[in-house]
Design a protein around this nucleic acid. Structure first.
Lengths: 215, 215
DNA sequence: GTCTATAGGAAGATAGAC
DNA sequence: GTCTATCTTCCTATAGAC
């Protein structure tokens, strides 16, 4: 195999690990299978990482970073706040539908970290980053489309993080797209109802009814 | 060891497995540790179960049944619909706070089932049962305290299942009780706002404000 | 039905040549 | 830095006596 600096090898192995884990699950991702995926030998692995746990630490950091990017890119300002919210949920949802293994992996890694003594902080940091990202997105959106919130931003952020988490897991198990769409409509109404635009009107349609807005 | 019928041994081993898994996680729950917890030898285990997977099937069935019981017992009719909803969330939440390992276990078992080819149906059945239970509870509640829903009952049921799932996982990781309480208040308002009592009024306070209602 | 003993394999990690 | 070969440990499952 071609020689390459440790840092690049580490990236290569981390990405191979993510591919194997997204495909087969964390439990089946042995160092051997990860090395096979990356096309290197076992000892190259142990040259780059002290242990399998060290690799997993790297994997968790990478996958968290990726998840945050997905959330960030889901938010694109639209004509109305309600449209922005609905389109944001939809963009996130499309990513889940297109990459189920990757989303499943994030849950497995959370469990892994919570169960491994001394690794709990990795799970905590992961979830804190998600909450912080949502908070940040709310604030940024407020600069572009002024509105008031009926709940503190950090409470809404945490609700959004938890709720999308739950919906995602539910969808990974049951996978009923029609019901999922109805729920996305419902929570869009809910979240829009928590906002108040500058002129005092609520920025949402009060009745649950319509199909997803076209984008 | 005292001799006992297979059926009872199976229950004994299933319960021991749940204790070990809730404490140490699924990955660390080896047949040996489960047998030690149950106080039997390895061969007794293999006399009662064909394989470890057979035990896990039994564990998933038992833990799902338990989860449903928790949800069922959380709903107790109160003076108003809103109070009933809030108290229901609180009762469920108290159970999470008191039994974190058990709730964590349900997530791990879901992952396990989804990842083990041929076991996906166990995860699906688990989540379908949760949704069905919520639907059933909504219908039962409607008999006692008549109200209309702005969304189909099965959509609300699935939302409730997914949302409590997400909140629970979030709480297991971050564990901030104050924010969790604020979120419970918020979703109580949301859900109450989806209902309409017979006289046409909404059965909720429209503003997010107060502390949890006293019970 | 329950025991002790062990088969048989797969995992993480290391040794030492190149 | 990378290789092949091996160590050590731990697992599930079985064999066969009682």
């Amino acid at each position: 195999m071609a020689r390459m600096p440790s840092a690049e090898r580490r990236r290569q192995l981390t990405e191979a690990a993510i591919r194997v884990m997204a495909r087969d699950g964390v439990a089946r991702a042995t160092t051997r299978s990860i090395c096979a995926e990356a096309g290197v030998s076992l000892s190259v692995f142990h040259y780059c990482f002290d242990s399998k746990q060290a690799l997993l630490e790297s994997v968790i950091a990478a996958i968290t970073e990726h998840g945050i990017t997905v959330a960030r890119e889901a938010i694109r300002p639209r004509a109305t706040l309600r449209e922005t919210i609905r389109a944001g949920f939809q963009a996130y949802w499309d990513h889940v539908a297109a990459n189920p293994g990757e989303h499943m992996l994030t849950y497995e890694l959370t469990q892994y970290a919570l169960r491994r003594p001394g690794f709990e902080h990795l799970a905590r940091r992961q979830y804190e980053l998600y909450c912080d990202t949502y908070t940040e997105l709310i604030e940024q959106l407020r600069l572009l489309m002024p509105f008031e919130l009926r709940v503190p931003a950090h409470v809404l952020a945490r609700y959004l993080a938890a709720m999308t988490d739950g919906l995602t897991l539910n969808h990974l198990v049951l996978g009923d797209t029609a019901v999922s769409a109805a729920i996305l409509d419902m929570i869009t109404d809910h979240v829009a109802g928590l906002t108040e635009t500058a002129d005092g009107d609520r920025a949402h349609a009060p009745e649950y009814a319509g199909p997803p807005l076209s984008v």
